[in-house]
């Protein structure tokens, strides 16, 4: 890994199990700041679990056991007595399918702002506009900010969710196969946005399409059956993989 970028997220011996079924085993990874890191691997290998462990979303489900360390900016976020909402605020999430909150387009973006800041109405209005512009949605929705968010198309909803995430000024944007539910055109828009975002944010992208990872990733982590098989900068990973399983995956023999 290039030495110029600092480490944003690091896991040390991370183990996760659901209902005594081990999902992640001895995960040791480093995710560089202000880069786009892709987590790839066949479906069911624990990619989403790994992603959601970064903002402690796993624990809202039943029977989850998490052991090890997750260091964000050098601090372990698994330690007890921690302000969990504060960690989550630092990590925006873009999920597989867009889930707009049951409120208007504007309120969706303003949702996090109202919780965290004491901004007045005008400032909130301004931030909402700024965030919607960032995701290229402003021109499409500026006339109907008070309509329910559910009236937007799926692609628009996904961009709205992105706007909602960046409105609270996170440091990291976690993306869980954000294009899998979208049509190719909408998917392309999201991909472009992610590339734009990595200038200001650390982007972690879970994807199961290799081509997408090749197009956008700076750094790649390959998971297989809950273990990290290989990780490294994208050009090395794709052009010169060391591990035989990585080679098999890249050549399409395992999927």
């Amino acid at each position: 890994m290039s030495t110029e970028s600092r480490i944003q997220i690091e896991t040390k011996n991370l183990n996760v199990s659901f209902h005594d079924h081990v999902v992640l085993q001895n995960i040791d990874i480093k995710i560089p700041a202000k880069k786009l890191t892709a987590i790839i691997g066949p479906s069911g290998c624990g990619k989403t679990t790994l992603l959601k462990s970064f903002n402690r979303l796993l624990e809202i489900q039943d029977d989850v056991k998490i052991a090890g360390q997750i260091l964000v900016d050098g601090k372990n976020i698994l330690r007890p007595h921690l302000d969990v909402p504060d960690i989550r605020k630092k990590m925006g999430l873009l999920s597989q399918k867009p889930y707009p909150l049951p409120m208007s387009i504007r309120d969706n973006v303003a949702y996090g702002l109202r919780i965290h800041s004491n901004k007045n109405k005008d400032e909130i209005e301004k931030t909402v506009e700024h965030c919607l512009q960032e995701v290229g949605l402003w021109n499409e929705v500026k006339g109907r900010l008070h309509d329910p968010a559910s009236q937007l198309s799926v692609g628009q909803q996904q961009r709205l969710c992105l706007a909602r995430a960046i409105a609270v000024e996170p440091e990291v944007v976690l993306c869980d196969e954000p294009t899998s539910a979208l049509d190719p055109l909408a998917a392309q828009q999201i991909e472009k946005l992610l590339l734009k975002l990595k200038k200001d944010y650390t982007v972690v992208l879970v994807t199961h399409t290799l081509r997408q990872a090749k197009r956008v990733a700076d750094y790649v982590i390959f998971l297989y059956f809950g273990m990290v098989i290989e990780q490294g900068p994208a050009d090395i990973f794709f052009n010169n993989p060391k591990n035989p399983e990585t080679k098999a995956y890249l050549s399409g023999e395992i999927s």
Binding site: I60, P85, R88, K90, S95, G112, I115, H116, V168
Partner: peptide, 9 residues
């Protein structure tokens, strides 16, 4: 729920 929690609610 995740959508709401992940903005720090």
């Amino acid at each position: 729920r995740e959508a709401s929690l992940s903005v720090g609610a």
